[in-house]
Write a protein that binds this DNA or RNA. Sequence first.
DNA 1: GAATAGGTACTCGGATAATGCCTGTCCGAGTCTAGTGGG
DNA 2: CCCACTAGACTCGGACAGGCATTATCCGAGTACCTATTC
Lengths: 167, 167
Amino acid sequence: MRLAEGVEWGVHSCLALSWLEDEAPIPAARLADIHDLPVAYLAKQMQALARAGIVSSTSGARGGFRLARPIREISLLDVVDAIEGGRAVTFECTEIRRRGPVGQVSDSSFSAPCGIAAAMRRAEDNWRAALKHTSLAEIGREVLAAAPGTADATRVWFAQSRNPVRN
Amino acid sequence: MRLAEGVEWGVHSCLALSWLEDEAPIPAARLADIHDLPVAYLAKQMQALARAGIVSSTSGARGGFRLARPIREISLLDVVDAIEGGRAVTFECTEIRRRGPVGQVSDSSFSAPCGIAAAMRRAEDNWRAALKHTSLAEIGREVLAAAPGTADATRVWFAQSRNPVRN
DNA sequence: GAATAGGTACTCGGATAATGCCTGTCCGAGTCTAGTGGG
DNA sequence: CCCACTAGACTCGGACAGGCATTATCCGAGTACCTATTC
């Protein structure tokens, strides 16, 4: 069970967008350059973030992505759900309790959810609660605490490459 | 992100083993019959449980599986880790923060873990703690509360099919 | 000189292949049982 | 009658394919900008 790595990309990209607080949107290609990621695939993840309303997209020349709301109002859960398509459900009960001879014999009403599913649901709720409680702003602070120069370096690199030399 | 469905099978099988508290081990084929599961694949899951020390296996005629310890001493986390092979890690940091131009520029020591990984780790710890706190005995009680006849039905069916008619 | 129309380049968006993991299956090694023959 | 041996069958264990989700990619639709032409 592994979370899609697009989550990591999405969070880092949102952090970069917050550091590059600029009036102009930033295209996916530029965001991909920052972390040396596959352009097309990151673009796909950004589309997911746009659909979820985390970032807003602008088409055409000088277009790109920008944060749709302050980064402190974006939770880690928002990004996870956006990338995973809302199906970030760790456990899906297949109701095998109903199958087989025993399931046939005990005709009990299965209206109550399976005990396994209930327990898994409780654990998953804890997981989601922790993710919801964490904002990208907090994560950004942690990232900068570990590597303080990152934000400035991002800004410097972006300014230098703003008008790239054409061949 | 979906948990392997073998987890559900493993838990139900362990519950069945606890209900069929018998001195004799129960072969995987019999366990598979209970819930109408693919025999070979369930056997594979049972092997994983055996490797993890949750059940003990006996080879040869009259062989099979039995619980290695009381069911109240088996946590849901034990089963999840056993089936998932210990790699039930929801998030794996690929350290993209080091890649790309910015990562190169900011030569900061990356000894501290990435902020994203840390936040994910906290959420995952909550998840694992909830799973660890839940014993299969509790789940069994919930299952029986929902469908009270299950345990008896399992015992009856097992006794009836103990000496199956050969063709 | 200013405005407008057209062309061009750039960007997102969704539709389309390739890869890896989970699912599913098979056969061989080992072990216990049961039957048989001998003491 | 009891014991040892042998043959048989049963069970687990690990090695071997198939299906599907994730990963990765591409091309088309739309938009803004820039340029050239006209008034």
